[in-house]
């Protein structure tokens, strides 16, 4: 037998989510931390695209986990934990936006330079389109302003589907609505975005 195999520690077992939830209900901090590690990125992302503010998104992400841990005894697994957490985040985000109102100044995250290798971006740059002339920062700003012009419910489906890539049935379950409603919201939201982004849309 290979000696190296004997000395190499076995890979750390990834704890099962059900077990993590059980432990988190008993206020096991390590289990709670693991749940935060698994989902904070996606929850932050959702709230960032909903609010166009990195500071607000960070505060709201913390709120979502604090709320979720406080209500964990009510989660019985009718849906996945991830769907349940998303529901909390969407409701919290929409309530926050209602209180905050429309904001003109955006506080944007940095763009990963990998965008320059994105096939669609490369295609846009190659065309006779304003994208060829616009800086990445300008494009990012335009996209965010356009998204902020949508109503909260239209923006939410665009973020969940077009940015986060979630399928229609999952979005319908998160929003407790039908798949048809999700599709029709997407259709009308994109039509509105087309107006706001007509200089960039091919």
């Amino acid at each position: 037998m290979n000696e190296q195999n004997e000395t190499t520690p076995p890979p750390a077992e990834v704890p099962d989510e059900g077990e993590l939830l059980q432990r988190a209900r008993r206020r096991d901090r390590a289990a709670g931390d693991e749940l935060v590690r698994r989902y904070h990125g996606r929850i932050y992302n959702l709230l960032y695209h909903m609010t166009a503010s990195r500071e607000d998104a960070e505060d709201l992400t913390q709120d979502v986990f604090v709320k979720a841990f406080a209500a964990l005894h009510r989660f019985r697994g009718g849906s996945s934990f991830y769907t349940w957490l998303y529901r909390i985040a969407i409701n919290h985000g929409i309530n926050f936006l209602k209180k905050r109102g429309r904001r003109e100044t955006l506080s944007l995250d940095n763009l990963d330079q990998a965008i320059e290798r994105d096939p669609f971006y490369v295609e846009l740059r190659a065309r006779e389109s304003p994208v060829r002339e616009a800086s990445l920062a300008e494009l990012q700003n335009k996209l965010n302003v356009a998204l902020q012009q949508l109503s909260d419910k239209h923006r939410t489906v665009v973020v969940l589907h077009d940015i986060q890539g979630l399928p229609h049935p999952e979005i319908a379950s998160m929003l407790k609505t039908s798949e048809g409603t999700v599709r029709s919201r997407l259709f009308y939201a994109r039509r509105q975005l087309q107006q706001a982004l007509k200089e960039f849309a091919p």
């Binding site: 709670g32 935060v36 990125g41 965008i115 994105d118 669609f120 077009d162 940015i163 087309q194």
Partner: peptide
């Protein structure tokens, strides 16, 4: 519709500030 979807999807390249996980955990 498809072109709009792909244009909006470029927002996925926006990245949170480094240290988000540590800040979230500490605050929580």
């Amino acid at each position: 519709q498809d072109a709009l979807r792909r244009l909006i999807a470029l927002k996925r390249y926006e990245q949170p500030a480094p240290g988000l996980e540590a800040r979230c955990l500490a605050a929580i």
